[in-house]
Computed example of a mutant assay.
Amino acid sequence: MFPSSYRSGLRSYPLELLTTLLIDLDESNVALKTEALNDVKEHLNACLVRQETSDREFKLLSRIVSRVSVDFFIESIPWEELSSFIVSLNDKKMLLMFGELPTVLDEGFLKPLLEKDLAFKIVKGLFHQNRDFDDEEWCLALEAGFNLMLQLINLERKDLVWDSVYAIVSSVWEMVNVRKRDMVVRKGLLRLVRKVRSEALRFRGREYEFVSRLALMIKRIDGLGDDTKIAAKMIHEVLDRYYMGGTGLDSGFVQGLIGMHSA
């Protein structure tokens, strides 16, 4: 019998090859045909239900799911199995996979995740009360919370958007000023930079305006280290570099969002 680590390596290799292939296709602006998407979906569904999946394999699967799901949602191809799989995960894996998903989810896909307390699990990760605080889980919660905000902006759920904003900004303040984890915050913000870089091409005016303002709010938090302020600034810089204009700035949505909770 081969050791489990060896078997895991054998399983990871084709996933790494597929990840590389999808990256190459993405950078070449080549979309998968519907027939190919259905084949990939069938194989991914089989991978998702495996009981023995290493952390490395799960991260690779999450990246693959992220890349192919863009085409699924753009082509309006349903993927109920993915939504069901995500809600079955433990908190940490749910945050990881959701944080990797693109900002093109429809309400039908997002609804069961919200019904299974996705938002609560994000807040729980951002304000972890256990003595053994998990820095990685905080970063995953930050990514997932940021992604959820983008999804909710797309669905025009102003009330829930504000809840997400408040949770993220409050958590960053607590991490810096109470937990003294400025370096962890910087690590998390750099992940948001990566997220913005991959998603900004699909942003419309309201997503642009919102992300820009959120980055400014974080940058202005008292106690933030200089390097961490630079990371917050990078969010805005990358946003400006990759944003293609969308449908024009939807300042009315953002102003309405701010007006709901000002004064």
Score class of each variant (00 low, 15 high):
residue 1 M to I: 12
residue 1 M to R: 12
residue 1 M to Q: 11
residue 5 S to F: 09
residue 12 S to Y: 04
residue 13 Y to N: 03
residue 15 L to W: 00
residue 16 E to H: 10
residue 16 E to M: 08
residue 19 T to C: 09
residue 19 T to Q: 14
residue 20 T to D: 12
residue 25 L to D: 03
residue 28 S to D: 15
residue 28 S to F: 08
residue 29 N to R: 14
residue 30 V to M: 11
residue 33 K to M: 10
residue 38 N to S: 04
residue 40 V to H: 09
residue 43 H to D: 08
residue 46 A to T: 10
residue 50 R to K: 12
residue 54 S to E: 07
residue 56 R to P: 00
residue 56 R to T: 13
residue 56 R to Y: 09
residue 56 R to A: 08
residue 59 K to V: 15
residue 68 V to H: 03
residue 69 S to A: 08
residue 70 V to E: 08
residue 72 F to G: 02
residue 72 F to K: 03
residue 76 S to V: 02
residue 77 I to V: 12
residue 77 I to A: 02
residue 78 P to T: 09
residue 80 E to Y: 13
residue 81 E to I: 03
residue 83 S to A: 14
residue 89 L to A: 00
residue 93 K to S: 01
residue 96 L to K: 05
residue 98 F to N: 01
residue 105 L to V: 14
residue 108 G to N: 14
residue 108 G to F: 07
residue 109 F to G: 02
residue 111 K to S: 10
residue 111 K to R: 13
residue 111 K to F: 08
residue 113 L to T: 07
residue 120 F to W: 15
residue 121 K to Y: 01
residue 130 N to P: 02
residue 140 L to H: 02
residue 143 E to N: 12
residue 145 G to V: 05
residue 146 F to Y: 09
residue 149 M to S: 09
residue 154 N to K: 15
residue 155 L to G: 01
residue 158 K to M: 13
residue 158 K to H: 06
residue 161 V to K: 03
residue 161 V to L: 14
residue 165 V to A: 01
residue 168 I to S: 03
residue 169 V to S: 04
residue 173 W to S: 10
residue 176 V to Y: 07
residue 184 V to G: 04
residue 185 V to A: 06
residue 187 K to M: 02
residue 187 K to I: 04
residue 188 G to F: 00
residue 189 L to F: 06
residue 190 L to C: 11
residue 193 V to H: 08
residue 196 V to R: 07
residue 197 R to G: 15
residue 197 R to Y: 15
residue 201 L to H: 12
residue 203 F to W: 04
residue 208 Y to I: 12
residue 210 F to Y: 14
residue 212 S to Q: 09
residue 213 R to H: 09
residue 214 L to T: 01
residue 223 G to E: 13
residue 223 G to R: 12
residue 224 L to G: 04
residue 225 G to C: 04
residue 225 G to A: 11
residue 228 T to L: 00
residue 234 M to R: 08
residue 243 Y to K: 02
residue 245 G to L: 11
residue 246 G to H: 05
residue 248 G to W: 08
residue 251 S to P: 04
residue 254 V to R: 13
residue 255 Q to R: 09
residue 258 I to T: 05
residue 262 S to V: 14
residue 263 A to E: 05
